[in-house]
């Protein structure tokens, strides 16, 4: 625990104004986050000492602190342990197919630009099966916030190797140790044009909250990787102890380097993890760039997107009532 003493301030645990921290006050009977959760679905499916619940508290706190109108926020998830996040958060939420959370969210955003689209999904979902969508959303600077919870394996299906599994780590599909080179995910999205990139661990709740809040307020493609303990499959198979032991590992081995070159942010098996906010820059979003180009080419002929159909108004396009 010596390191704990040395690095405690890294975690912003002291000197925090409780009035600014996390969501509005609870009462003795009422947990303040229950308003943001589908309590009729609790307890969630995540294992004891899994970090996903902690990611949700950071998300909820960020939503509260961002003051973005709650009805504007939609949460999209793919498949997997993290894919269940959308189902627990009391927002308009979508649990989509494996890997397709980003294009689904793209459709939501482009069709209804008022929405604040947030994705919470796993490393396998976003970076493996959804890898193509990830790089293209980053390239387009599509206005959305992607929270990629990285637990280094496919946990829901029992701990198979993922493109994030560090070399040397064991998984059910790498019984003799993973030998493929894993993705350096912040570098991947940075190189593809993401305009906000950060990485924290599930222990860095305060920094993670601030990052999610910044990402949600950021215009453009914002990406946050959250290193999160998977006690039941990844930690067990690699004899790393419980999720709490992994949290302690993150505590002792994460090095905050804001605006570090993402190229240097590789994660090696049980070695130091570079965390921080790596990229934050302003560039035209997909919708900005589209509008600008159309205006340039079409001039007065350009009719900006009319927006989605309005349930409250008779669109005037309708003649008959479907409910016959």
């Amino acid at each position: 625990m010596q390191e704990f003493e040395l690095r405690a301030s890294d975690f912003g645990l002291v000197l925090m104004n409780p009035n600014q921290l996390i969501v509005g006050r609870g009462t003795a009977e009422h947990h303040p986050m229950e308003d943001f959760l589908r309590m009729d679905r609790m307890p969630h499916i995540w294992c004891s000492t899994c970090g996903l619940g902690t990611c949700l508290t950071a998300f909820i706190a960020a939503v509260e602190e961002s003051t973005i109108p709650r009805e504007d926020i939609v949460v999209v998830s793919g498949i997997g342990c993290t894919g269940r996040a959308a189902g627990y958060l009391k927002f308009d939420s979508f649990h989509t197919t494996h890997g397709r959370a980003i294009p689904y969210a793209t459709g939501l955003k482009v069709a209804n630009p008022r929405l604040k689209v947030c994705l919470i999904s796993g490393d396998g979902d976003l970076v493996s099966i959804g890898g193509n969508h990830l790089i293209h959303a980053a390239r387009r600077n599509m206005d959305m916030t992607v929270i990629c919870v990285n637990n280094f394996n496919y946990a829901m299906t029992g701990g198979q190797a993922a493109p994030s599994t560090p070399q040397g780590a064991f998984a059910t599909t790498t019984p003799y140790g993973a030998f493929e080179r894993p993705f350096n995910i912040p570098f991947l999205v940075d190189s593809c044009g993401a305009t906000y990139v950060a990485r924290w661990t599930a222990l860095h709740v305060r920094q993670l909250t601030i990052s999610i809040k910044e990402a949600m307020l950021h215009r453009g493609f914002s990406f946050i990787e959250v290193i999160s303990p998977c006690p039941t499959v990844y930690a067990r198979r690699n004899r790393l102890g419980s999720g709490l032991d992994l949290m302690k590992f993150y505590h002792d081995h994460s090095i905050t380097k804001n605006f570090a070159s993402t190229r240097e942010c590789d994660i090696k098996f049980q070695q130091d993890i570079i965390v921080g906010k790596f990229v934050q820059k302003d560039e035209p979003t997909y919708l900005d760039a589209m509008d600008a180009q159309m205006k340039k080419t079409l001039g007065a002929k350009f009719v900006p997107y009319v927006g989605p159909m309005d349930p409250g108004a008779d669109s005037g396009r309708t003649k008959s009532d479907a409910r016959t």
Partner: peptide, 20 residues
């Protein structure tokens, strides 16, 4: 307790919280 609410932030089960 100094009401720092770190337990509340870290708890993955929404099972612990602080009030001033």
């Amino acid at each position: 307790c100094v009401n720092c609410r770190l337990c509340e932030a870290l708890c993955p089960e929404f099972a612990i919280w602080n009030t001033l």
